[in-house]
Computed example of a mutant assay.
Amino acid sequence: MEFEHVKPMDIEKRSMEIIGQELAEKGITLPADKAHIIKRVIHTTADFEYADTLTFSEHAVEKAKEALRAGATIVTDTKMAWSGINKRTLENLHGKACNFISDEDVAEAARQHGFTRSAASMDKAASLPGPLIFAIGNAPTALIRLYELIEEGKLAPALIIGVPVGFVNVVQAKELIMETDVPYIIARGRKGGSNVAAAICNALLYDLDSSRGMKKS
């Protein structure tokens, strides 16, 4: 068995080259403005199905970048997604990442209303100032609650990243978000995860980070 000899700092670059080669072999051409996002998700998951299932509303990438340049807050439904976001790059854009899943007031609200904590944390996030990007990788209940808040006129997100993974209400929750006028990036079907949500956030961030050599990977 032969191994490629790749310097540690070049592993990501080489991975992206392999992804590009395999996409070409499959006859898949990615839209130029979305390619870096789709490739980063494939890089995170080693799953080429995302080339077909990642769905973008019109101008979603452009609008997400505008929000990030304006110092957007990224709200996640899990600590794992929050942990995976590159905070330094986000802070360089004067933004921040938040997760309220462990907050006592969120736990109490969940008990009182019969919500999941993920859903209750969306209510808390709705009061945050400035542009909001929601990165949902685990809880379809969070997407459903976001839909309700949007319909009630209580929330107008700059972007919803809807990529929860699972079997119960996952597909339906994603379809609900696609019915709104809010910019979205959705992984259709059952696949997704907190790592996918973070990967999409990072792809957007890296594309705005002029100091990062791989910003278009």
Rank of each mutant, 00 (worst) to 15 (best):
M1K: 15
M1T: 13
P8Y: 03
M9Q: 15
M9R: 15
D10C: 01
I11H: 10
R14I: 09
S15D: 13
M16F: 15
I18H: 09
G20N: 12
Q21S: 06
L23Q: 02
E25F: 11
G27Q: 08
I28M: 02
T29H: 07
P31H: 07
K34W: 09
H36G: 07
I37H: 01
D47V: 04
D47W: 06
F48L: 06
F48R: 02
Y50K: 04
A51V: 06
F56Y: 15
S57E: 08
S57H: 13
E58F: 12
H59L: 09
A60S: 15
V61P: 11
V61W: 11
K63D: 05
K65V: 00
K65E: 07
E66V: 13
A70W: 07
G71M: 01
G71Y: 04
A72W: 08
T73V: 14
T76N: 04
T76F: 01
M80V: 10
N86G: 00
K87W: 00
T89N: 01
L90P: 00
L90E: 00
E91F: 01
N92S: 06
L93A: 01
L93T: 00
L93E: 01
K96I: 07
C98R: 14
N99W: 05
N99L: 04
N99E: 02
N99Y: 11
I101C: 07
I101P: 03
S102I: 09
S102Q: 09
E104Y: 06
V106Y: 02
A107K: 08
E108H: 13
E108R: 14
A110Y: 01
R111Y: 02
R111M: 11
Q112R: 12
T116L: 01
A119R: 05
S121P: 01
M122W: 02
M122Q: 10
S127P: 00
P131Q: 05
P131R: 04
L132H: 05
L132V: 10
L132G: 07
F134Y: 13
F134C: 05
A135N: 06
I136V: 13
G137F: 14
A139G: 06
P140H: 08
P140I: 03
L143Y: 10
I144V: 14
R145P: 12
L146T: 08
Y147A: 15
Y147Q: 15
E148G: 00
L149V: 08
I150R: 04
I150S: 09
I150D: 10
E151Y: 11
K154V: 05
K154Y: 11
K154H: 13
K154E: 10
A158I: 10
V163L: 08
P164T: 15
P164K: 07
G166V: 07
F167C: 07
F167M: 04
V168E: 01
V168H: 04
N169T: 11
N169Q: 14
N169V: 06
V171D: 04
E175M: 14
E175G: 12
L176Q: 14
M178H: 07
E179H: 14
D181A: 14
P183I: 12
Y184A: 02
Y184R: 00
A187K: 07
G189Y: 06
G189R: 10
G192K: 15
G192Y: 15
G193F: 10
S194K: 10
S194E: 13
V196Y: 05
I200N: 03
C201R: 00
C201D: 01
N202R: 04
L204M: 06
L205S: 01
Y206M: 02
Y206K: 02
D207V: 03
L208F: 02
S211Q: 10
K215A: 09
K216A: 11
